[in-house]
Write a protein that binds this DNA or RNA. Structure first.
Length: 192
DNA sequence: GAAAAGATTACCT
DNA sequence: GGTAATCTTTTCC
């Protein structure tokens, strides 16, 4: 019997472990008449004592969801798009950066955190919802085992830029660029 | 109260 | 490869 969804205990673990193990898993949203899903191919971990973490300076109006139970969604707005994260330990979360469309998505392309949210219909209204138990959004275990998983520096940040907390499925064409396995100098790709 | 800074993306040359 | 768009939150005075 397969597990229907990833529950609380999956998320209540060290953030980088969760970020790595989410590769290949699926993220589904449900709206009246539509189910939309992607197979996750790229994530980033935002951990404790991390200058790039929105919660690094404690709780604020924006990041309060990051202190919710494991499995809580933290959705925030940046420029004109939103990005979705799932909480692990208090003040820590995994950013879902890219996915491979499975069905129902409006977009044929879910590469990049903003596009992924748009493809799944995730909005700022989903901030704080419980993806470990709630009805609208859930994570499912992988059905197709991911290939090798690679790691590299996170994207688009200006602090703690060197930490290899970005994870991706090796070779996936759905991963946003730069691709960790491309191996350009200074990117320090490593197998993870 | 004002100013700066984004965990991005699309479009420019 | 570079930069403008765009607007909320955060931070500083």
């Amino acid at each position: 019997m397969t597990v229907a969804r990833l529950g609380r205990s999956f998320f209540d673990r060290p953030t980088r472990i969760v970020a790595r193990q989410l590769i290949g898993c699926e993220l589904w949203t449900r709206d009246p008449g539509v189910e939309r899903g992607v197979r996750i191919v790229e994530t980033e971990a935002y951990v404790g004592r991390d200058e790039a973490n929105h919660a690094n300076r404690g709780m604020t109006r924006r990041n309060r969801s990051m202190f919710g139970a494991p499995g809580t969604l933290y959705v925030y707005r940046i420029h004109r798009v939103v990005c979705a994260n799932v909480v692990t330990r208090p003040g820590q979360a995994v950013l879902i950066r890219a996915g491979e469309p499975l069905g129902g998505t409006r977009e044929l392309w879910a590469g990049g955190p903003g596009r992924l949210c748009r493809a799944l219909g995730i909005t700022i209204a989903d901030d704080g919802t419980d993806a470990a138990a709630g009805a609208r959004i859930r994570f499912r275990p992988w059905r197709r085992r991911p290939r090798a998983i690679v790691s590299g520096p996170r994207i688009g940040i200006s602090r703690a830029v060197e930490r290899p907390l970005r994870f991706a499925e090796a070779g996936s064409r759905y991963v946003s660029s730069p691709r960790p396995w491309a191996g350009s100098a200074g990117k320090r790709p490593t197998s993870a």
